[in-house]
Design a protein around this nucleic acid. Structure first.
Lengths: 281, 281
DNA sequence: GCGACCATGATTCATATGTATCGTTCGTTC
DNA sequence: GAACGAACGATACATATGAATCATGGTCGC
């Protein structure tokens, strides 16, 4: 009956719990490790709650008592974090696809080159307008970069193909523009076209790609490399590209100084005024 | 005096210990997690040793008693859990913002929980339809997850707000649907609404968020945690969320078996036929 | 051979721990 | 307004837990 991860069932019934039980449940959700190690009374003291509350919480979750819940927590955590105290973590090959993918992403991140990002940020900073282009799965990276840049450069940042077919956008490239193109093999036709047109228009071309031989990297002023393939996943990984795009926007923001900060505050105030956000938990 | 990691001092004095103490020490080294969670007597039973042996072992390590050793073990494991596994990497302080961001992303990735991703993938696999919802910067994550899922589930995957205002999408949630909501603080109003409606419609709710206390995690059947803040960047980081989304789609694909593979091949063939791609370098 | 010493197991005990129980409070319903 | 029940805190209790103590067996030195 309660063979699922206890944290999942906890979250499911959490909203329907009475106030103090929910408070205890919240604490448990935030401090799962303590729940597995400390005693029930110790937990209660840390949470500022009555010990009996945790017994009741366990029973509300379908366990016979706190011991049952605690055992389930221990079991789920043992699987979750294989601490492997002595043997290096790298030794035991990842047992399943998921952790293998995460591990590959980890390795991919560590291969990124910070220096190339910083010089590209300078180029973005000094460009009059910035175009961001990414298609198919790379569209996710492009939208994020575009979104973050717009937070402090709202009027001078455009997404290629953001407001319709990309033809018109490409046609309006200007020599003082910078164009960021993101792509990896197999390269979408649109991204290659965008890069070619950017070169033709004498823009500053910044390419985020998987290899210097990529079509969009040809003649690019800045080349930022990330690993897309190589992982065990069935699809290419965009984790490295995302990390690089974020670092790029942050570095560009840092170059913007006080002016950029002011514009960011304005944007945030505008979002808050339209109550786009709800208050935190 | 014994502020070092207990496992280190253990290993140091292990060879000089009397036979039974050494045997217990071996077991402790191999099952550090159990030592931190189970009771001393329980440990002794599992190790096939006398309970008193572990008290003596703790004293031999310089602790007042077993409780002292156990607390040290807990503390060292708590630290080892959330901090980066490649602790050597964290030592040399990053020289600039960019590499600091990448480093923070690296640490964030290592904190992801593969087990929770796998169980969520099962839920996606068995859902009739899958809705993906993310707004503002999380839209990037949502589009990528939607894109990858559509590669092998083209007809049963939808992006909330993908074809217009999200109201109509939200209204058509069905109990056999699964809804994936991505968000972090400050939480956009649309994402909270989507999660609430998903719950109301009795959908399977899968939340990707920065804390279990996030509004969209309330009552969620599956909760996948990632770190958004914490880095030195000016904007939250979506690297962890992207990595998790990709792992989620790959895991779901793997569950799909031959049928999913067939559909993926069909999609690829269709893209190639329309010559969306250019040949590689 | 024998006493001293250490390692180890068994026993015992004070304490910590989880839970059943009772009384109180608060909100709801008739 | 009375009656009811849920939620919660406080108390009491049976049990589990860790550690001190005692007892035993084996080893080393003389």
């Amino acid at each position: 009956m309660v063979a699922d991860p206890p944290m999942d069932t906890l979250r499911r019934i959490l909203p329907d719990l009475p106030p103090r039980l929910r408070q205890a449940g919240q604490f448990l959700a935030d401090h799962g490790f303590d729940a597995a190690t400390r005693s029930m009374r110790g937990l209660a003291a840390a949470a500022g709650a009555n010990p009996a509350t945790f017994t009741r919480l366990a029973q509300a979750l379908g366990y016979a008592g706190w011991d049952g819940l605690r055992d389930a927590l221990i079991e789920s955590q043992r699987a979750a974090d294989p601490i492997a105290p002595f043997s290096g973590r790298a030794q035991h090959a990842p047992d399943n696809l998921t952790s293998a993918m995460l591990q590959a992403d980890l390795a991919g991140l560590s291969r990124l080159d910070p220096a190339s990002i910083d010089t590209a940020a300078k180029a973005l900073h000094s460009a009059e307008r910035v175009w961001v282009a990414g298609f198919r799965s790379c569209r996710a990276v492009a939208t994020l970069l575009h979104y973050q840049l717009r937070l402090f450069r709202p009027d001078t940042t455009r997404l290629v193909g953001g407001t319709g077919p990309e033809d018109l956008d490409i046609g309006s490239f200007h020599p003082t523009d910078a164009v960021v193109v993101i792509g990896f093999a197999p390269y979408s036709r649109a991204s290659v076209t965008t890069a070619r047109e950017a070169r033709a228009a004498a823009c500053t071309l910044i390419a985020l790609a998987d290899t210097p031989a990529a079509p969009m990297a040809e003649g690019a002023h800045h080349f930022l490399r990330f690993d897309a393939a190589g992982g065990p996943g069935f699809f290419p990984s965009l984790t490295g590209a995302i990390a690089m795009a974020q670092a790029l926007s942050s570095a560009t923001f840092a170059l913007g100084g006080q002016a950029a900060l002011t514009r960011l505050r304005e944007t945030e105030a505008r979002l808050a005024a339209h109550s786009q956000y709800v208050s935190g938990p």
